[in-house]
């Protein structure tokens, strides 16, 4: 995958031109400082306009970026004592979901998240972050443990979706996702969910129910992949760009619809442009929200979580007269 976005190209070209002019300027034969200053102003404006107006499709590209920090990057850079725990105690261990115990600031917690690879070999090993039922069941096992020990849960979301495979279906992918969602609606400890990359449909939601759902600015979260949507609605996968812009999958749109609680700002151009800054932002957001949630009793947590999801929907109530006609 290219590390340069289509929309970034004019900016990169402009920056290249500025560098060339500077070199000429340095020879001292002509004074280009006025031109350079003008181009620099232009570049600054362009930068703000490019990154301030990223489309849904641009966001999909950033969210899928090969260098974008993954769950393990956050576990290693935000948490201490991360201790990975394996297996669903039923059948196997799913490498597409990493899970374990860790500490953020001083607080012990249960953590899990989808794990994508950064290159082909790792991606194959991680099944591109697409969980099998065992992944959801491993998360469920750890959530029950979190509840027993009163540990809060932090969940990282980054998956193209649940794995569409024969064995996955055979082992009850639908049941695994449903049971995990059901469990999360009632678990008696705080849950903070962070969408760090791609939130792919049911495979994401299976571990994404939370008291607080945070979303990195350039992450996407969608009911269906843009490619899948284009194929179904218009029978044309090349219309994925159009689908991405129609599906309302950006952090701003989801905040507006009341489906995510907070947007976490990213460095200009994406989380990968300055990972240290990204880790700092995410760490602060997790600790702030965990602190806040720790003040709620288990009963309050469950009730508030129910009410939070209860209102997610857009419909209208027609008058009886209207229905008659």
């Amino acid at each position: 995958m290219s590390t340069i976005l289509e929309v970034e190209k004019p900016l990169l070209e402009l920056e290249h031109k500025i560098r060339e002019l500077r070199e000429v300027d340095l020879t001292g034969q002509v004074d280009l400082s006025a031109e350079i200053r003008q181009l620099e102003r232009k570049a600054k404006l362009l930068k703000a306009s490019i990154y301030g107006n990223l489309s849904g499709w641009d966001r999909v590209q950033i969210a899928r970026h090969a260098q974008r920090p993954t769950t393990i990057d956050y576990l290693e850079n935000i948490f201490t004592d991360f201790t990975e725990l394996h297996g669903d105690r039923l059948l196997g261990d799913d490498p597409a979901i990493v899970a374990g115990l860790a500490r953020v600031e001083n607080r012990a917690c249960v953590v899990f998240g989808h794990q994508k690879g950064k290159e082909t070999k790792e991606n194959l090993a991680r099944n591109f972050g697409m969980p099998n039922p065992e992944g959801f069941r491993k998360a469920c096992r750890l959530m029950r443990m979190a509840e027993r020990f009163g540990l809060p849960i932090v969940s990282f979301i980054d998956t193209p979706g649940a794995y569409p495979g024969i064995v996955a279906e055979e082992r009850g992918q639908f049941e695994a996702i449903a049971s995990s969602i059901l469990l999360m609606t009632g678990i008696k400890v705080p849950i903070v969910t962070v969408v760090i990359g791609e939130g792919g449909s049911g495979g994401a939601l299976g571990i994404a129910v939370g008291d607080r759902v945070l979303m990195l600015e350039n992450s996407v979260y969608s009911v269906i992949s843009p490619e899948g949507c284009a194929t179904i609605l218009w029978r044309d996968v090349t219309k994925a760009k159009q689908a991405a812009n129609s599906l309302g999958l950006t952090s701003e749109k989801l905040k507006e619809l009341g489906l995510v609680d907070h947007i976490l700002p990213e460095p200009l151009g994406g989380a990968h442009r300055d990972t240290a800054e990204t880790f700092q932002t995410v760490k602060k957001a997790i600790t702030t929200n965990l602190n806040d949630l720790s003040r709620q009793s288990p009963t309050e947590l469950i009730e508030n979580r129910y009410q939070k999801y209860r209102v997610m929907g857009r419909f209208r109530e027609a008058s009886p007269n209207e229905l008659e006609s």
């Binding site: 059901l182 269906i224 949507c229 999958l249 489906l259 857009r314």
Partner: peptide
């Protein structure tokens, strides 16, 4: 699909009601 993520979230709220 035409309801985007609002549609996905129905999985969570219906499951919460089942609980």
């Amino acid at each position: 699909m035409q309801e985007g993520m609002l549609s996905l979230m129905q999985m969570a709220r219906t499951s919460a009601a089942v609980r």
